[in-house]
Each structure stands twice: as C-alpha cells, then as structure tokens.
C-alpha cells in the first residue's frame, strides 16, 4: 500500500510539473542557445518571466520614434498574427509556434532588438527585457 502511495505521489508530482511549468514548449537547441546568451548577460540571479515579457510587448513606450510607440504598432496585439512594416511588408507572427525558425540565429535576434528597441523605446533594451520577451514569444 505504502509503495503504491509513493508511486502515485511521484506520478502526481511529474504530472503537476508537466502541467504547471511554463516550459518553452517548441523551443529547440538553437533557441536555448540564444536564451542562454541573454541569461549570461543578465546574470544567474535573474529569472526571465513570460508575464513581464507580455507586459513589455503590449506596453506603450516613450522615447522612440513617433511612428512606433509600441511593439504592437507593427506586430499587432497578438503574437500569433502576422504584422506589417511601415512599408506595408508582411511580418511573420512573432510566436515561435507560428514561425518555427524564429529566435534561431543570434545575429538576427541582436539586429532586430537593436533596431526595434531604438525605434520603440529610443534606447537599447536590457538583457532582462530581451530575455522576458524571448521567453514570452517562445511560449506562445
């Protein structure tokens, strides 16, 4: 009887950890690599948060270019939907589940963070902001 309890306890813990962990579901080794890059920059004591990432993505910022006060100016409010550049070119959805090759090339990720943070916030984003953003998008 006792042993059965032990087994079910282990199963329950496994089950709960599976359900509750906001695991970056579709993230592969390439994405992990990039997350690790920003984790290293932010320091080990910082934990990236998808909720903070979402808040950052949806927020209206100041200091950037007038055309783009928010990430959503171009990317729309849903990461699952495709956006439009100011030149009207289609932007593939930001969610990793929709665009499988996103966040797989560090050079590209760096470029877009540099450009878009400056356009939206008028400054570089911090490693933590970038990490939060990535965790949010990889979980979508």
């Amino acid at each position: 009887m006792k042993s059965w309890n032990g087994v079910s306890a282990v199963l329950a813990v496994l089950y709960l950890s599976f359900v509750l962990t906001p695991a970056p579901a579709a993230a592969g080794p390439a994405q992990d690599q990039i997350l690790k890059h920003y984790q290293d920059l932010a320091g080990a004591d910082v934990t990236f948060s998808a909720d903070r990432g979402k808040e950052f993505f949806m927020a209206k910022h100041t200091g950037g270019k007038p055309k783009s006060p928010s990430c959503t100016s171009c990317h729309t409010k849903s990461p699952l939907k495709s956006g439009r550049t100011h030149a009207n070119k289609k932007i593939a959805p930001m969610a990793l589940s929709k665009t499988k090759d996103r966040y797989s090339e560090l050079k590209k990720v760096k470029k877009w963070f540099r450009r878009n943070c400056r356009s939206v916030l008028g400054r570089e984003c911090s490693p933590q902001e970038k990490g939060d953003f990535l965790v949010y998008m990889m979980g979508q």
């Binding site: 100011h86 050079k107 470029k111 540099r114 450009r115 400056r118 356009s119």
Partner: peptide, 12 residues
C-alpha cells in the same frame, strides 16, 4: 540608417 524614413534601420 539610424533614422531611416522614421525608423531605426541600423546595420552592423
């Protein structure tokens, strides 16, 4: 490129 038609389009 930092102010490219109202956007930052800087390159490495």
């Amino acid at each position: 490129l930092e102010d490219h038609f109202g956007e930052d389009a800087s390159l490495d």
